[in-house]
Every structure is written in structure tokens, then in C-alpha cells.
Design a protein around this nucleic acid. Structure first.
Length: 203
DNA sequence: TACTAGATCGGCT
DNA sequence: GCCGATCTAGTAG
């Protein structure tokens, strides 16, 4: 069991989104749910910056919907899209910069039965179910029971927090173009752990 | 296995 | 109205 000293400090999040994103790979995200704690290793992320990034929610300035994205680095930003999907982001940089890293996939580590019930209303039966549990932004939010109620949380507090986890060597990080957007699609700001099956799509 | 379309709803035009 | 940082089921090959 991790201790609180492993929680990544606020200053860890003070970098630009595109610099921080690869460093988040291999980190462990934890989410307290009642008496249980769900956790998973981050395997896939995408960076979204404010300026020069027309795909970012922050592009065009602060609005009601995206105001959390302009919070200080280390804040959790959750938004709702396509009718029934939530996506979760980690805000980076300084306050009012509007940068964030989208978490696209994690590898389930603990609380797997609870995640599976959240998503399938049944237990995982095989490896395929395990992968399908959290290999996409909407999927992992459902498995972790993340909704807009969690928007704006501080990632150094004890509801949702991130710990050091495993260090991923640079050569095991695959870089590719972002997925699922129609603007600024050429930015190489998608980072995945090479050879890890828990990603939404191979680069 | 690969591609296509429908679901579904909050916020912006 | 329309569109979206998605997912799933369905059809074709």
C-alpha cells in the first residue's frame, strides 16, 4: 500500500502539457470510492495546450464550461461529451494558462471487480474484458466512476491522487498524433507506453 | 478484422 | 439547431 509521501507534489504539474504528458506514463492514479480504492497505471495520454492548439477546450479563452482547465496545475478537469461520456484531464502549468493532459487509458491494478461492475454490471471474465475495461477516455471514467462531480478536485488531496509508480524509459514511450479530434490533428502530442496492451489504439 | 453509422445531451451559435 | 478530446453494434470482406 502506498503512503501519502508518494503523492506527486504540486510542483510536478508546473510544466507545459506537452512536456508533462510523457512523464505521466507509468504513474498510478488512485480514486477513493466509499471504503474501496481503485487504482491503475497510466498507459496513454494526450497533451492539450491553450495557445496554438485549436483542438483544446482552452482555445478561445475561459468560459463557464472550461474554467477548470485554467486552474493551477495538479487540478482534475472532467468534462462531458457525446451525450454519455466523461473524459478526465490533469491540469498542468500555472494558473490561467489553460493547459491539460487528457488521460486516455490506464492499466487496472486494484479494485478491478468494482471497476468491472461500474462498466459491465458484472465481473471481468478474461484478459479481453480487462483490457476493454479502461482502454479509452470514456471507458476509464466509467470504470473509475468519474463524473462532473469530480471536476475541479485537487490531485494532492485524498479523493483522487497520483503516485510515482513505475519509471518508463524514454525508449519505451511511443509518440503519435492525437485521436478523435478534427482540428490541429498534426500535433504529435499523444504518448503511449510501447508494447503495453492497455491502450486505445496502437500508434 | 475494418469500416460505418447511431446513440445521446449540454453548451454554444 | 448543431456539434463534439467517444463507444458500441452492426455489416461487409
Amino acid at each position: 500500500m502506498k503512503t501519502s509521501s508518494d503523492i506527486l507534489p504540486k510542483r510536478f504539474y508546473s510544466k507545459k502539457a506537452s512536456e508533462l504528458a510523457p512523464k505521466l506514463l507509468g504513474k498510478i492514479i488512485h480514486r477513493k470510492l466509499g471504503k474501496a480504492v481503485l487504482s491503475g497505471m497510466i498507459t496513454e495520454v494526450e497533451a492539450y495546450e491553450g495557445d496554438n492548439d485549436s483542438a483544446s477546450h482552452a482555445c478561445g479563452g475561459m468560459k463557464n464550461k472550461n474554467s477548470t482547465m485554467f486552474a493551477v496545475g495538479g487540478t482534475f478537469y472532467v468534462y462531458f461529451t457525446y451525450g454519455n461520456h466523461h473524459c478526465c484531464n490533469i491540469v498542468t502549468g500555472k494558473e490561467s494558462e489553460g493547459q491539460a493532459v487528457l488521460i486516455r487509458s490506464v492499466q487496472p491494478l486494484s479494485g478491478i471487480d468494482i471497476m468491472s461492475m461500474n462498466r459491465f454490471q458484472r465481473s471481468c471474465e478474461n484478459q479481453k474484458d480487462m483490457i476493454n475495461l479502461t482502454n479509452g477516455p470514456g471507458k476509464l471514467c466509467k470504470a473509475f466512476a468519474i463524473t462532473r462531480n469530480e471536476n475541479g478536485l485537487d490531485l494532492t488531496e485524498d479523493t483522487i491522487w497520483i503516485t510515482q509508480g513505475k519509471k518508463i524509459p524514454a525508449k519505451n514511450i511511443a509518440i503519435s498524433k492525437r485521436i478523435g479530434i478534427s482540428k490541429s490533428i498534426d500535433f504529435p502530442w499523444r504518448f503511449t507506453i510501447a508494447d503495453n496492451p492497455f491502450v486505445s489504439r496502437k500508434p
